[in-house]
């Protein structure tokens, strides 16, 4: 499939002043989704998200049109998200895809937590993340496309089942499953949960701070503390482990921002439960990604090496279990 040519044909439908698309380039070639950047010849900067032909969907992933509808719904809450310009039809020749505005900024956590360019916005970023999460969680459920619902016990059971399908024998995971099962919080009224709110999916501008929440593929209805805990998982602190929120802020700033924007009260212990479950989930995901190497489906060195990231989640889980012992 010739993506640049298809985008050029689509251009006049995206803007009345455009005749063609230029500078089309693939930004990332994930196994489940491709991201392309391109410009219209009237200067409009855009992004194409598309599912490659024959790609397996992530286990819980929704169709892309669904993701686009979610982003539109999230925009109505005031949360910063890219503007959806077009959901592709079969006649667009791009397969399952949508087009959105391209935001300016950085998604690489390593740069956001370290580069001097972000020194100005970094101190306010955790508070801002709290505010934005409160906005997302305030979405009216009637506005949303249909979504799966889960809670702490459900998520635990789901990931334990995935782990049991694997032949790996990891005592730290076994201990963590039993520990978290015993300390799982009672369910609350489900809200819209982004499901992957962390460095990598947050577009941060050096002056404007958080300007876009990306990748809504894993959104669902669930416990609001899930999103607050996930961004505190140590695997995306990029060395800045003393700053639990994404390597750039502390728990209180996140919770204060959440409360300031009208979010319901969330106890730190509930957040930390979800943080620990987040480390465990990420560990199981690493094992699953390694499985695609072991089965021969993806023989790349990347898929082999990700299996050795399981130990990072184990060291984090041991620390969390010791702290609560």
């Amino acid at each position: 499939m010739n993506i640049p040519a298809a985008l050029a044909r689509l251009a006049p439908h995206l803007s009345a002043r455009a005749t063609t698309a230029v500078n089309a380039r693939q930004l990332s070639g994930g196994a489940s989704l491709e991201t392309w950047a391109f410009d219209l010849d009237d200067g409009t900067p855009l992004i194409l998200r598309r599912r490659p032909e024959g790609a397996a969907m992530r286990e819980t992933a929704a169709p892309l049109a669904h993701e686009a509808a979610l982003i539109v719904a999230a925009a109505r809450t005031g949360a910063p998200v890219p503007v959806i310009e077009h959901v592709c039809d079969p006649e667009d020749g791009l397969g399952e895809a949508f087009v959105m505005r391209r935001l300016e900024g950085e998604t690489l956590g390593k740069r956001i937590v370290r580069d001097a360019a972000f020194d100005t916005v970094r101190p306010g970023l955790a508070h801002r993340c709290g505010q934005v999460l409160a906005q997302i969680h305030g979405a009216l459920l009637d506005d949303l496309p249909s979504l799966a619902t889960s809670d702490a016990r459900g998520e635990l059971a789901r990931y334990e089942a995935v782990y049991r399908q694997h032949t790996a024998e990891r005592p730290t995971f076994e201990a963590a499953f039993r520990w978290l099962e015993a300390s799982a919080p009672e369910p609350v009224t489900p809200v819209l949960v982004h499901g992957d709110f962390r460095n990598g999916n947050l577009m941060v501008h050096p002056e404007q701070g958080l300007v876009g929440v990306l990748d809504w593929e894993l959104a669902h209805l669930g416990d609001p503390a899930e999103d607050l805990g996930w961004i505190c998982v140590n695997s995306w602190r990029f060395g800045q482990w003393r700053q639990p929120v994404g390597g750039f802020g502390d728990y209180q700033a996140l919770l204060d921002g959440y409360a300031a924007a009208g979010g319901r009260e969330i106890l730190l212990s509930r957040l930390q439960f979800w943080q620990a479950l987040g480390s465990l989930k990420w560990g199981v995901m690493c094992l699953m990604m390694y499985s695609s190497f072991a089965s021969g489906a993806d023989p790349s060195i990347e898929r082999a090496m990700i299996g050795r990231r399981v130990s990072e989640t184990e060291i984090d889980l041991v620390r969390l279990m010791e702290a609560m012992a």
Binding site: N234, R237, F238, W241, R309, E312, D316
Partner: peptide, 12 residues
């Protein structure tokens, strides 16, 4: 062995 620079070690 896997990742000696991982910050979780320092944290632990």
């Amino acid at each position: 062995i896997d990742q000696p620079g991982y910050c979780g070690l320092e944290a632990l």
